[in-house]
Amino acid sequence: MPLVVLAGIVLAALPFLGGSQYLATIGLLTAASALVGQGWNLAGGFGGLTSFGSVMFFGIGAYTAAIIQTRWGINPWFGLPAGAALGGLAGAVVGFAAFRAGLRGSYFALVTLAFAEVFHVLSNSLALTGAGLGITLRLAPGLGNFQFLDRRASYAVMLALLVLATALAHWLRASRFGARLVALRENEDAAQALGIDIVRTKTLAFALSGAVIATAGVVYTQTYLYIDPSIAFSVERSVEMLLVAMIGGPGTVWGPILGAIGLHLVADTAQAWIALPGFAAMLYGVVLLAVIRLLPDGIAGMFRRA
């Protein structure tokens, strides 16, 4: 594994060495996928809580950042903790309601999808979120404003968040809380018999997942200076985070990073090959089917067996 980590560090540093904005953009997109994938992985991988609607956290983070600065004049940097807090809160509320009702498996996946749709509809109707028009940020580049003309700076922020999220996953794997989470993923009845509070453990994991994914939404708003309902709450992004985690290796610390790199390699190759809209995403689906059939433990599982 150390060799892989070293390779990862070199790869992550690459966009900083050259002055290329293109490389930085690829780095930013890959790190963003890895971050949301890692966020999804915290609950979906370690806890087996397959969510189809985790884009709701991304959207909450994105809108939190936009709203606090355009509506209330609060410093944009405050968006990160505020977005994470609200994402975590949403995860706790949705999770508690769903787990207390005993929803699991496919039912949990569907109810998260429905919650994401509720947020989508709300953001499309409320004045606070600018309804269908969305929110445009005033261009004011500067470190104090959390706005950068240089993509490398945005990439650096995303990368820092990814490191934090991965450290969180690392902690989770070694902690008692993580052990409880894995135990109830493997056998819920047995875990309950051992005295694990199922609702509490799952809710906490989903809240953690929500907080991490929300930070990616905050950085999105700060990078593109615009957010609207269909960007913030798209089903495609929910699928993307799930894909990244499932392809890389659900319930592993490095899986989402491997999955994000793999997915973007596929996407960029496909784009260069056949540049039709939808073609790359179609391959995502094929890859997902192949992974389910051939590599149920993802790319990381391949390394472990070797």
């Binding site: 397959t50 189809f52 699928v239």
Partner: peptide
């Protein structure tokens, strides 16, 4: 569930 999701994406 994920296989049917994969089919939907494709």
């Amino acid at each position: 569930l994920l296989a049917t999701l994969g089919v939907a994406v494709v």
